[in-house]
Amino acid sequence: MLCMVTRAGVATPGLTEDQLWRAKYVCDSAFHPDTGEKVVLIGRMSAQVPMNMTITGCMLTFYRKTPTVVFWQWVNQSFNAIVNYSNRSGDTPISMRQLGTAYVSATTGAVATALGLKSLTKHLPPLAGRFVPFAAVAAANCINIPLMRQRELQVGIPVTDEAGQRLGHSVTAAKQGIVQVVISRVCMAIPAMAIPPVIMNTLEKKDFLKHRPWLGAPLQVGLVGFCLVFATPLCCALFPQKSSIHVTRLEPELRTQIHEQNPSIEVVFYNKGL
């Protein structure tokens, strides 16, 4: 209720300043900044830690058998597809055919990468096999994010002046935003998928876990969650959501259009997505 009131620009009488700011945070996290649509719950950044700790923990636990590798990579990329679509930049509609093609391509790429790397690590130390999920996730992010946001690469994303006045659409800004998101997502996965495997590889050699193998999965999920609590906000903050780009780096047509409207503008802003 507070969120809807804030979006309408009307404050309920009696609200304190802290309550208004709280309402703004809730509103910003629940609604897409460009389309104004309410984002599905698991597509919001607030769902990243609980969802990713479960999925990533299972990927790191069940990495030995091909069926479980395929299943958890599919679950992970399905979740990533929802997140990438929900946090895209711009308000250009995407057809169901484009979404379906992007989803199938990204999921297939992730599974193929995981299985290919898994086969390469058969003759390597056991610890090497534990890093296969991370390599697959990093590669899949480079596939999934651009594919799920391919419409931005075709028609561009809105760029605005400092006051938020829309100046046009830019493919160059879209490319920069997508690269920033890919870097953030890969960095976000590094602590959660690199630290727990080393710890678990040591713990599984101890008698405590040998006698209690059922503790392996929940312990792994807990370690991943602990890492994600810190990595998620830090990596989301690597690049500001309202990013900027110099006018000289934009497409010639858009650059000319902006200079005709306001010659004094040197930097424009855009929503890079998350």
Rank of each mutant, 00 (worst) to 15 (best):
L2V: 10
C3A: 14
C3G: 12
C3N: 13
M4C: 13
V5F: 14
G9I: 05
G14W: 05
L15W: 12
E17L: 12
E17W: 04
D18Q: 13
R22E: 15
R22V: 12
R22T: 13
A23M: 01
D28T: 03
D34R: 10
D34L: 02
I42H: 01
I42P: 10
R44N: 01
M45N: 15
A47N: 05
A47R: 00
N52S: 14
M53V: 03
T54G: 15
I55Q: 01
T56S: 11
C58K: 01
F62N: 00
Y63K: 08
Y63L: 05
R64H: 12
P67L: 01
T68E: 10
Q73P: 04
W74K: 00
N80L: 03
N80F: 01
A81G: 05
I82T: 02
S89R: 02
T92V: 11
T92C: 07
T92A: 12
I94Y: 00
S95C: 04
M96T: 07
M96A: 12
Q98S: 12
Y103Q: 00
S105H: 06
S105R: 09
A106T: 02
T108W: 00
T113P: 04
A114H: 08
S119D: 12
L120S: 07
T121R: 03
K122L: 14
L124M: 14
L124K: 13
L124Q: 11
L124E: 11
P125A: 06
A128E: 06
G129R: 06
F131G: 02
A135K: 04
A140E: 06
C142W: 06
I143L: 14
I145G: 01
I145R: 01
L147V: 08
E152V: 07
V155C: 13
I157P: 05
I157T: 09
T160S: 15
G164I: 01
Q165W: 09
G168Y: 07
S170D: 04
S170Y: 00
V171G: 01
T172V: 14
K175M: 11
I178Q: 09
V179R: 14
I183D: 05
R185D: 14
V186W: 05
C187Y: 07
I190M: 13
P191D: 04
A192R: 00
A192N: 00
V198Q: 09
N201I: 04
N201M: 11
L203T: 10
E204A: 07
E204Y: 09
K205A: 13
K205M: 11
D207C: 10
L209Y: 15
R212N: 15
L215A: 11
L215I: 09
P218D: 08
Q220H: 08
Q220C: 14
Q220I: 09
V221S: 09
V221T: 09
V221H: 01
V221Y: 06
L223G: 00
G225D: 05
T232P: 04
T232V: 15
L234K: 12
P240N: 10
H246D: 13
P252C: 06
P252I: 03
T256R: 15
T256N: 15
Q261V: 10
S264Y: 08
N271K: 02
